[in-house]
Design a protein around this nucleic acid. Structure first.
Lengths: 225, 225, 225, 225
DNA sequence: AATGAATGAGCCTTCATTCAT
DNA sequence: GATGAATGAAGGCTCATTCAT
């Protein structure tokens, strides 16, 4: 019956997500996935036709799950800095909160290390919207004369910082030791990244020089949040 | 003869590096590696005993190759900002220069997405020294009262930015389009990251506030390079 | 369908029996077995999981086949000597009858030369019952005061004789020549072993002395069969 | 130098003997043999040309070792029963004495289970002489009218008994339990087999009947040894 | 005389996939 | 609609052997 079929399909997606994230596409076996999903060995080929098409569906499925925690809807007039802090905090939560299933982010890390056919879909349906939101915030936050390219680069600098604490975890953890790494919770990292980035966002001195503090003087006294 | 043996070994390491980086550990086949190295199928087993031990040796080998392009030896009295710019530039070259073999960095990206037994070795013999050098520069660059943890976080913010332009390439490329991405050369990215970061490094305002420009005022007029 | 599955399984067992007996466990190849069984190369893995587990199943299977030719059911009052001759004849038939598949016995010879995990199973489910039947016959045949150990040793002496004409065939054949060996059929060997053994079974003189004929005098005139 | 070469050759033979007996021809690896012998991997091919030719040489070598414990030289006039007991005892010692290297006999068991090219050599240079000695004793021991074939069969019955306690050990041990098996030392088995066989050797009744005790009555009172 | 390096054949196993039911 | 049985393609690895030195 349709209800049971959908149920099996859904259990397969969930199980496949875990396994793909944990082992990678190649190392993941259909046997393992079907086993965890409590489904027949041929179920994958029956429901998705292919291991590869299952993978694509898993990525799409992950997208829907990610939407559950949507970005906040700021009331008109919300200060850009508040939005910015919310944005960074939101991203770090999704990346680092141990209560969230880890396989979602892990899958993205894999797509970056080895982009597959699903990568384009991932960007379009999952990443681009978030990126555009960040750009909107940056428009408000950066000096009006800032070029589009400079804004892009700034956005990547911000995302790069957030991501590194997740993707670079194996390295960071070894460099500072487990004890200190354990103190890198979402609150502290949000504080750090927001402060680190805000200093830069206000500056507008030419290449080859350091930050022009004067222009940000006014803003720096604003209270965020 | 030893010379020939070393030659075969070396060719295997090079070929394996490419293949592992391109396909990943699981998807890489010993057949492919030996084929590219022009060696017999059993050569891997003879020289390294195992596909896995070959992988570890490849990582170690990558380390030695990386050493070839060492960090510059600055004469005493070199300005910290000059050192910092050199550092960032050096890292970006290693990450992005198309003339350098790509597999080295790609391998590191894989180790981050799915750390293996070789990850610890990678950190200790390849990453830690560079990290410590960066910390030394930051000590000179950041206010004297900066805590060790704050310095660590700053270091990761810097490395995270550099890395994202390499590891996040598949995403970045799709977000800004291939045309703009092609303009993201080492020079431009160095400029951007140095400027973005220097603004933050001088600030020392408490958490919850934005950059305190005053303290960096003096430094900001220094000419780097 | 279950019927077809059982059929494939059965064909595999038969083919494996032949090959294992002919080549030994190590030298036997899964390819050869599957080839003879007309099954796919992966069938062994599917049905038995392992070459080794296939071997164990083959030994168990051999046991079931052996049961087909069961020992005769003697009516009450049958003379012990008749039972004894039947027993020896039965064993020799199973060992030597060229119309019976040879691999069964050959496999046992291998298990003796190099006992594997399957050896214990072989003894318990296949050999012990026959051994106990022989002991029961010996109880009737040997003097009542015979010790259990003496009876055990006698049983092994009898089985040893039978077995040697099968297992020692390569040696015996070379020693007496092929022509004479060809005359060693079941009937002649049964006669020989029965006569050779019956002379000993009746004796009860102490160690260091030869057979005491007196006690068997009465029996020796009985006509067997 | 020749001395060292011979030494390596000898160590290879000893090591190969152990390994072949322990693992069988197929399962034995040249690596293992060379390892135990402390020789180079290519030494086997250098000294013997082949794994198979090494095996043949090992069998020949085993023969020479076996000669060390030669059959006793009986003075003229020695009683046949004394010779017979000595013969059985001698064979059992070679088969069962735990102080003797086990691989020698084990190798023979293998040759019987799966005769190789070395089997003929084994028979001619190692077994036939012993067999002929037994036949000479039997000529003295059996009634003069005994046919050659009957004598042959008797010889095999005797050898079969001895051999079974060695080759059938895995089965015998399981049937009677380890405790009782431990009491089956050379002395007890010699007693048993001699007594069991002597009873038969004197008998000369026609096929289809049991032993004629009368004919052995006189001999049975002789004291052996 | 003796060895370290290299070879090619082949084996067991695993895997994704298909088919008949 | 869903499954147990079966398939064929590789893959990693081991092994005996050879060759240049």
């Amino acid at each position: 019956m349709a209800a049971q079929a959908d149920d099996t399909r859904h259990r397969l997606l969930e199980a496949a997500g875990e396994v793909f994230a944990e082992k990678g596409f190649q190392a993941a076996t259909v046997r393992d996935i079907c086993g965890r999903a409590g489904a027949n060995l041929a179920a994958v080929n029956y429901h998705f036709g292919d291991k590869e098409r299952l993978y694509v569906e898993v990525v799409k499925h992950a997208h829907h799950c990610g939407e559950e925690i949507a970005y906040p809807q700021w009331p008109p007039g919300t200060r850009p800095r508040k939005k910015f802090r919310d944005y960074v905090s939101h991203m770090l939560i999704r990346l680092l909160d141990p209560r969230r299933p880890a396989w979602h982010t892990q899958l993205m890390a894999r797509e970056m290390a080895q982009p597959s056919a699903a990568c384009a879909a991932l960007v379009e349906s999952y990443i681009r919207s978030g990126h555009e939101l960040l750009e909107e915030i940056l428009v408000e936050l950066m000096p009006p004369e800032t070029s589009a390219i400079a804004r892009h680069l700034a956005a990547f600098s911000i995302v790069g910082q957030c991501l590194y604490f997740r993707i670079g975890r194996p390295i960071v953890e070894r460099l500072v030791g487990e004890d200190e790494f354990r103190t890198y919770d979402v609150a502290r990292l949000t504080d750090h990244i927001v402060r680190f980035s805000l200093a830069a966002l206000g500056s507008r001195q030419p290449a080859g020089e350091a930050s022009q503090p004067a222009s940000t003087a006014g803003r720096s006294r604003e209270v965020i949040r």
